[in-house]
Each structure stands twice: as C-alpha cells, then as structure tokens.
Computed example of a mutant assay.
Amino acid sequence: MSSSNRTRPLSPHLTIWRWGPHMAVSILHRATGSGMATVGAILLVWWLVALASGEAAYQGFLDLFTLKSGGLNIAGYVLGIGLSLSFFQHMASGVRHLVMDMGANFELKSNKRSAQLTWAFSVVATALFWTYILVVKG
C-alpha cells in the first residue's frame, strides 16, 4: 500500500489524546507494580545473602531497615516510604480498575475524580502508616 491511500482508517495516536489523570494513574499502576516487584526481589535476595553470610552482614542489613532511637537512617526511610507509597498507590489503582472491570465509573467526570482519589488515598495512607510506625511503635 502506498502512503497516498487515504481511504483506510488511521489508528489514533498519543498526540491526539488529551492527557488526564486517568492516563497517568494507568501508567503509574504499571510502574508501581513493576517497581515493587523489582525492588522486592532485590531486597529478598539481599536479605537471604545477608542471612547466609553471617551475623555481621545480617546486622548491616538490619541497620538499614530498623528504627533506632539514637540515629536516623535516611536511606532506609526513603526506601520504606517509597515502597509504602507505591504499595498504597498500586492498591488504590487496583481497586479503581476492579470497579471499572465491573462496568462502572466510565463517565468522564467520575473517572477523573476516582483517578485523583487514588493519589490522595496513597499519600494519606502512607502518612498515616509512617506516623503509626514512628510515633506509636517508635
């Protein structure tokens, strides 16, 4: 077929769609799922290697992820907060997709609102989760 044949329908391209929160949430759902699986696998292997390597290696692993009254480990907090934010975002987006799979929430206004609510939920749930860990358990 030559490029001059204009009778066939053209597939929509990303440039003709207006970006909205529903698109960002869909992409973020995939990214958080892949990211949690990758980081989780790396952490599992690291934990197993540290466990098998002896007490000093295991203590080094624990020092990164254990709350200490005297010190603040920024890397552990960043990793923990990032993973919990990813988890809550992925969970909220999954519930949103489940509702859509049942045939609801396809109206543009409610779809946009539910996409925005996934972000709000993930931030609030992460803040509450880490407040509980740091204040109540710490």
Results as ranks from 00 to 15, higher is better:
Met1His: 08
Met1Cys: 09
Arg6Lys: 11
Pro9His: 02
Ser11Lys: 08
Pro12Tyr: 05
Pro12Ala: 14
His13Phe: 13
Ile16Pro: 00
Ile16Tyr: 06
Arg18Leu: 09
Trp19Lys: 11
Trp19Cys: 10
Gly20Phe: 01
Gly20Val: 06
Gly20Met: 04
Gly20Asp: 14
His22Gln: 14
Met23Ala: 12
Ala24Gly: 02
Ala24Ser: 11
Ala24Cys: 07
Val25Leu: 02
Ile27Trp: 07
Ile27His: 03
Leu28Arg: 02
His29Cys: 07
Arg30Pro: 01
Arg30Gln: 09
Arg30Lys: 09
Ala31Ser: 05
Thr32Val: 13
Thr32Cys: 13
Thr32Gly: 01
Thr32Met: 09
Ser34Lys: 08
Gly35Lys: 00
Gly35Leu: 04
Met36Asn: 01
Met36Gln: 00
Thr38Gly: 04
Gly40Leu: 06
Gly40Glu: 02
Gly40Asp: 05
Leu44Cys: 11
Leu44Val: 06
Leu44Thr: 12
Leu44Trp: 07
Trp47Glu: 09
Trp47Ala: 15
Ala52Gln: 06
Ser53Pro: 00
Ser53Lys: 00
Glu55Phe: 05
Ala57Gln: 01
Tyr58Phe: 15
Phe61His: 00
Leu64Trp: 03
Thr66Ala: 13
Leu67Trp: 09
Gly70Pro: 04
Gly71Gln: 15
Gly71Cys: 07
Gly71Trp: 13
Leu72Lys: 13
Asn73Gly: 06
Ala75Met: 11
Ala75Asn: 07
Tyr77Glu: 10
Val78Ala: 14
Gly80Lys: 04
Ile81Arg: 01
Gly82Ser: 06
Leu83Ile: 10
Ser84Pro: 05
Leu85Tyr: 12
Phe88Cys: 02
Gln89Asn: 09
Met91His: 09
Met91Glu: 07
Ala92Lys: 00
Ala92Leu: 02
Ala92Val: 03
Val95Tyr: 07
Val95Arg: 02
His97Asp: 14
Val99Arg: 06
Val99Lys: 05
Met100Thr: 08
Asp101Val: 06
Met102Pro: 03
Ala104His: 13
Asn105Thr: 03
Phe106Leu: 05
Glu107Asp: 15
Lys109Cys: 05
Ser110Asp: 07
Ser110Met: 06
Asn111Tyr: 00
Ser114Gln: 12
Gln116His: 08
Gln116Asn: 14
Gln116Trp: 07
Gln116Lys: 12
Gln116Ala: 06
Leu117Ile: 13
Leu117Glu: 08
Trp119Leu: 12
Trp119Pro: 03
Trp119Gly: 11
Ala120Pro: 04
Ala120His: 05
Ala120Leu: 15
Ala120Phe: 12
Ser122Val: 07
Val123Ile: 15
Val123Gly: 02
Val123Ser: 06
Val124Ser: 00
Val124Glu: 00
Ala125Leu: 11
Thr126Gln: 03
Leu128Gln: 00
Phe129Met: 07
Phe129His: 14
Trp130Leu: 07
Trp130Gly: 01
Trp130Asn: 03
Trp130Val: 03
Thr131Ala: 15
Thr131Trp: 11
Tyr132Ala: 10
Ile133Thr: 08
Val135Glu: 08
Val136Thr: 09
Lys137Tyr: 08
